[in-house]
């Protein structure tokens, strides 16, 4: 019963996370803290839904930055990257890590999205199908770009602060599209109106994953 190796790498990441609880706990606290700050800064003011949509994605972006930055750093720090290189090919490692990041980000952004809609009364989504499609497609794109960038920063000397700096210009087309689609979901647009945005999100992920698979081995191999 030999299952695909990327899946085994994915399982290893999940098992490791449940053992150490590092990323999940830190991430949860980060999300709770950020959401609390958003709520306090809004106060009793009525804020336009365009701003609220933008803020949702700011929360998701920075949470992703804090949650995914350690994907490869942990392997470098503990000296297990050599082990992983010995056991399997770079591509298998990339796909496994990417899948794990997708699951982590989707869990995170679904949680954020629910919490956000719950605690911010002015943020009323009229088209749930557009909203959740945006969350899912945006999450996948975010994971795609974050995985390769996390691999890059794991090899650099200053790890923490570098991540958002590298990620922001790369992720901007994705974030702007997500914000726009979220605005459409609040406006209660038809699904077809957001279709062009979804196409952009899907092709962003496809292009990012394809490019990552090609260049990952240069980053991964010493």
């Amino acid at each position: 019963m030999v299952t695909p190796i990327p899946y085994q790498v994915f399982v290893k990441e999940v098992a490791s996370e449940f053992r150490t609880r590092y990323a999940l706990n830190a991430l949860l606290m980060f999300v709770v803290t950020t959401l609390t700050m958003v709520v306090f800064s809004l106060g009793d003011n009525t804020v336009p839904y365009e701003i609220l949509s933008g803020m949702l994605w700011i929360v998701i972006f920075f949470s992703a930055m804090s949650g995914l930055s350690r994907t490869f750093v942990t392997e470098e720090e503990r000296g297990t990257s050599l082990t992983l290189r010995l056991l399997t090919s770079a591509t298998n490692v990339y796909i496994g890590k990417f899948l794990y990041n997708v699951v982590l980000i989707l869990a995170m952004s679904v949680f954020i999205a629910f919490a956000y809609r719950l605690i911010i009364d002015d943020f009323v989504v009229r088209s749930s199908s557009i909203f959740w499609t945006t969350i899912v497609l945006g999450g996948i794109g975010l994971a795609a770009a974050s995985t390769i960038l996390a691999a890059i920063i794991a090899k650099a000397n200053t790890k923490g602060t570098l991540f958002p700096v590298l990620a922001f210009p790369v992720l901007l087309p994705l974030l702007l599209t997500c914000i726009r689609a979220t605005v459409l979901s609040v406006e209660g647009a038809f699904f077809s109106e957001a279709f062009k945005d979804f196409q952009i999100l899907v092709s962003f992920s496809v292009v990012m994953i394809a490019a990552s698979v090609i260049v990952f081995e240069y980053v991964w191999n010493d």
Binding site: L149, I152, L166, V170, P173, V215
Partner: peptide, 22 residues
């Protein structure tokens, strides 16, 4: 690393052409 980053940043450039006007 900088070569890889320029590639990753480079592949997103075309998206701006489509995304910005929207």
């Amino acid at each position: 690393l900088s070569a890889v980053y320029s590639i990753i940043a480079g592949v997103t450039v075309p998206f701006f052409v489509f995304v910005m006007p929207r």
